[in-house]
């Protein structure tokens, strides 16, 4: 847990310094007769984040020496089984998101839901198929037919428009 805390603090310092550098594309100072320039807020905010993150880091390093049972220091960041469960659904979830632009949100969602229900959740075939087909069909009717919001279809677009 403590290690994760420090990694995040270090990550924040680097990211915010990078953003601060990017913010200098616009004036970061106070312009005469106009007040702060366009880069002022992002620049000083990112420097501020870097500074406070550094304080978090220092605090964490100091508290390690003093007190092991500090709330932020106690416990592990993630248990092994927890991580396993997370990966078994989280990774496919990521793949589902990436596939939306390729095989359409409908097929991607159907595959993902079926995977979660049948392979991970251990539901029977009937329930798994029913939910994995039912949800995309309901989403299709609500979004495409009723609300008329075309959702991404990727290369499967021709399947949805016959003429």
């Amino acid at each position: 847990m403590q290690r994760a805390d420090r990694i995040v603090a270090i990550g924040l310092i680097f990211v915010s310094l990078g953003v601060a550098w990017k913010a200098t594309e616009l004036p970061v100072g106070i312009l005469p007769k106009e007040g702060p320039g366009g880069g002022f807020l992002p620049f000083w905010l990112s420097l501020g984040i870097a500074a406070v993150a550094l304080m978090v880091l220092i605090q964490s390093l100091l508290s390690a020496r003093r007190d092991e049972s500090d709330t932020a220091g106690a416990g592990v960041f993630m248990s092994r089984e927890g991580l396993g469960d997370l990966m078994r659904v989280g990774l496919p979830g990521m793949i589902m998101i990436l596939l939306i632009g390729v095989i359409s949100v409908y097929f991607s969602a159907a595959l993902f839901i079926f995977y979660c229900l049948f392979l991970v959740g251990g539901h029977n075939l009937k329930t798994s198929l029913g939910v994995s087909i039912g949800v995309p069909v309901v989403v299709y009717y609500i979004f495409e037919k009723f609300l008329i919001i075309p959702l991404p279809k990727g290369y499967a677009e021709f399947l949805f428009y016959w003429n």
Partner: peptide, 20 residues
């Protein structure tokens, strides 16, 4: 096990629709 994948799908659709 049923609710979580459905919520993820709905989140994806919900994240897409305002800005397409």
């Amino acid at each position: 096990t049923i609710l979580a994948p459905i919520i993820l799908v709905v989140c994806a659709v919900g994240g897409f629709s305002p800005t397409q």
